[in-house]
Structures are given as structure tokens and as C-alpha cells.
Write a protein that binds this DNA or RNA. Sequence first.
DNA 1: AATCCCAGCAACCGCTGTCGT
DNA 2: GACGACAGCGGTTGCTGGGAT
Length: 256
Amino acid sequence: MNYKKGLWSPDEDRRLRDYILEHGLSCWSAVPASAGLQRNGKSCRLRWINYLRPGLKRGNFSPEEEETVINLQAKLGNRWSQIAVHLPGRTDNEVKNYWNSYLKKRVIKAQNSDPHGSATSSSDCTNQGPVKHEEEPNSQMISPATHVDTGGFSPRLTALNGLPKVLFGDCLQANGGDSLHDLGEVMTNPWHSTNPHGEVCGQATDGTTNGYAGACMNGEMQAQPEALLQIQENGFFDILFPGLVYDRMDFCDREF
DNA sequence: AATCCCAGCAACCGCTGTCGT
DNA sequence: GACGACAGCGGTTGCTGGGAT
């Protein structure tokens, strides 16, 4: 079987998305044939995880996210999937790319200017193996300082589009019973069977789901009232959060 | 205007871990 | 315990767009 490689076309994305929406996730190796794709299962899985799955936040890393990546990279090494768990809506691939293309250089620069180390660069950022560490007791989460203020982003990214996006916000559940709700219902199910690591769910201190709206995968998708819904030409929804600020966010690993 | 260079990012590849038989 | 299938992870590659020359 000659599998197609390279970039995914909008039609391929649509096929894969439609298939998973309809059938949920089961065996990736069976997906391409069933969905009518000339890809291998591995490629489909990657495309879904890194681009098509609900709740992904595209674009800007906030200063808090940057801080989290830097701190966790120093602590965990290049365990990108574990680091990504602490960043709702971010994929390991995205975190890895962001580190390699931007944060690593920034940390190196900071170390050079401050050879004794600083709060955010406490270890050799060039280490490839994880720093010896005690396994986290299931991450009782990011520092309390995880204060999401979507107003401030890295200059580099702010210049691009200024706001974070949650792609494919079809996981949001606007009002029960409408089409979005139905779609949300469909979307939540696959997660119950596909997250051995537990996806991260933002949870406010009062116990309600919050933050990143569609990024919350516990089956109770709630649209942020402030969110602006954008429907793109390709059929994706973008949710924008102008000036969204949370007092405190506790993130927890969840088994689904 | 044309070319070159580089950063960013999507996707591939190979390895490892897990699970069922 | 051995084996195969599958999923997940991290490193790497290669394409693309934008800036510099």
C-alpha cells in the first residue's frame, strides 16, 4: 500500500474529522480505509492529535505558558508529552516546536547573561535527558501563579494575531439541544477511550470547568460567555477570548 | 525584482511501551 | 515468556513564508 505523505488537504481533514465524529476513535490502523484516506493510521492519529481534535489552542503562548514550559523542561527534561499535559490545549508537538525554535534560545541567552541561573532557568537547558527527579504525585498542578491573562503574549506571537484561539470549538456546548450541543456530545465520547494519560482540564477553584472553553474535555463543555465564536471558511470554529482573566486556575490530570 | 537565508511548523521516522494471545 | 499489533513519544526532516541582501 502506497500511503500518501506530506501536508494534509482540507478534504482529507474533513474526511478524517467526519469519520471520527461519526464513529469515534477505535483502531487507528482501520481509520484510513474506513474514512477513505490514502494515509496510514499513524499519520491519521498524528493529524487528529495535533490539529483536528477539539480544544486545541492555536497561536500564542502566554507568558505563563512560557514560564510553565521553561520550568517543566528544566525539571522533566524533554518529556514533551508530560509538559504538554500542564498546558491545556497545547500538543506535545507544539510545545516541542516552540521550545526548539524560541524558548531554548531565550533560556540560553538568559543563562549567558546570568551564569548563576535565574528562577526560570535553573538548570542546563541543553540537557537532553531528563533531570533526575522524583516522579510527580500526579501533578497537583501548576503553580498558583497560573493566572491566565490572554491580554499578554510574547511579542513575537502577538505580532501575528494577538489572540489565542481554540480551534474546532465544536466541542463547545452552547445550549443544550442545538446543533452545537449535538456535535459536542459526539465529540466528548471519543475522549473517554483515548486518553490513557488523561487530558488536562482546567478547573476553577469553585469546581466548575473553566478556561479555554473547548479545551476542557470532561464532557461538560461550557462556552465561555466572553468567547467570540468565529466560523471559518473551512468549517472550523474559533473561539476567541478577549481579555479573559482567571483569578486562579488549578489544572488536574483526569482519567477519562 | 530576484535571490538567499532563516525561522517556524507540520509531518515523518524510528524506537519504546503496553496489551492481548 | 515470546510474539505481534497497536499506541505513544521524542528526534529529525523538509516545506513554506517572510525578511534581508
